[in-house]
């Protein structure tokens, strides 16, 4: 099969789930009630992805908040900091590594099992990568950034292996921080390699907001089968880069702008897919949104995904003709 469609990870949470999460934080409802609603919206997203014909599914991360804090909160050896500014008027709390990292029990496996139990299509296991966990945390315990990243790699590896043992055929390990320090790309490769080594699954890494010009083609050393890049947001400049030096892995190509309320038209998306086909053959090209869709409304997210699948179908038909 060529041109598989998939998603990067998160989907918007429906209003009832957002409300329940706030109630849970205030202690007004218990974990069981919250989980029940999380399962309801996960099931709805699985159904939707099947209905519109997406090939490789995600659980939509309805039970997660921040992609780094979610894992840090479920590990031993971390606390959460006070508020730090992200940009503009946005603030977040960062994990603080204060002791040796350990994973007391599987974190995402039960949710993955639940989602995979609802469908015959593959559901991706979704993890945050060790380099990003390190770069987006404060480190008060390990002597160096490398030591800290490799300690995260150890626990992320345990989680990845448990997902594969549970039956996951595809595991995505996100590294959005990978291009922030070009001189540390070897550390990303090493830490991610600890996670993917001998892992019996297709492996993917997703990244975004990168200065890829500075790390390409070295980026092709990343020890994964597929690299997932946001492209519609950063323009199609990367394609020029790939023309100069061929992209040798599978490429998941972001064709949907997750930061815009405007739903792409089918012809717009078709054009982006055709652009990618100029540099990667169809059997190595996957199609997905730029990034997680959690900041869009549920309706915008659904419409954007529909446009993506419709465009993929049109391009595929033309290829077969």
């Amino acid at each position: 099969m060529a041109l598989e469609t998939t998603s990067v990870g998160s989907f918007p949470k429906p209003a009832y789930l957002k409300k329940a999460r706030t109630q849970f934080e205030k202690g007004e409802i218990g974990a069981r009630e919250l989980d029940e609603l999380g399962r309801r919206s996960t099931a709805a997203w699985i159904r939707f992805q099947e209905e519109i014909g997406i090939d490789v599914l995600v659980d939509g991360e309805q039970y997660r908040g921040d992609m780094v804090a979610y894992f840090a909160e479920n590990l031993e050896g971390t606390t959460i900091s006070g508020l730090v500014r992200s940009y503009g008027n946005r603030y977040y709390k960062k994990p603080v590594v204060v002791d040796e990292l350990a994973r007391p029990e599987p974190i995402t496996v039960a949710w993955w099992r639940f989602a995979q139990g609802l469908t015959d299509r593959p559901v991706k296991g979704m993890l945050t990568g060790p380099y990003t966990m390190m770069d987006w945390s404060f480190n008060e315990y390990y002597p160096s950034r490398e030591d800290c990243a490799l300690a995260f790699a150890k626990v992320v590896r345990q989680e990845a292996r448990d997902l594969v043992a549970a039956g996951a055929k595809v595991v995505q390990i996100d590294e959005p921080a990978l291009s922030t320090r070009e001189d540390e790309l070897p550390l990303v490769v090493k830490a991610l390699g600890e996670v993917t080594r001998d892992l019996d699954a297709k492996t993917i890494t997703h990244t975004c907001y990168g200065n890829y010009e500075r790390i390409y083609p070295a980026m092709l050393d990343l020890p994964v089968d597929q690299i997932d890049l946001e492209m519609s947001n950063s323009g199609l400049d990367l394609l020029a880069l790939f023309r100069k030096h061929p992209f040798t892995k599978e490429l998941a190509f972001g064709v949907i702008d997750v930061h815009s309320h405007v739903v792409e038209t089918k012809p717009q998306v078709e054009e982006r897919i055709r652009g990618a086909l100029e540099v990667v053959p169809p059997e190595r090209l996957w199609v997905d949104p730029d990034c997680g869709l959690k900041t869009r409304t549920p309706e915008e997210a659904r419409d954007k995904l529909r446009a993506m699948v419709a465009a993929r179908n049109a391009v595929r038909e033309r290829l077969q003709a």
């Binding site: 500014r85 992200s86 940009y87 503009g88 770069d135 987006w136 921080a177 922030t180 320090r181 907001y209 200065n211």
Partner: peptide, 8 residues
């Protein structure tokens, strides 16, 4: 992205 920070 602003240098190697996680800010923009």
């Amino acid at each position: 992205r602003y240098f190697d920070t996680n800010t923009y």
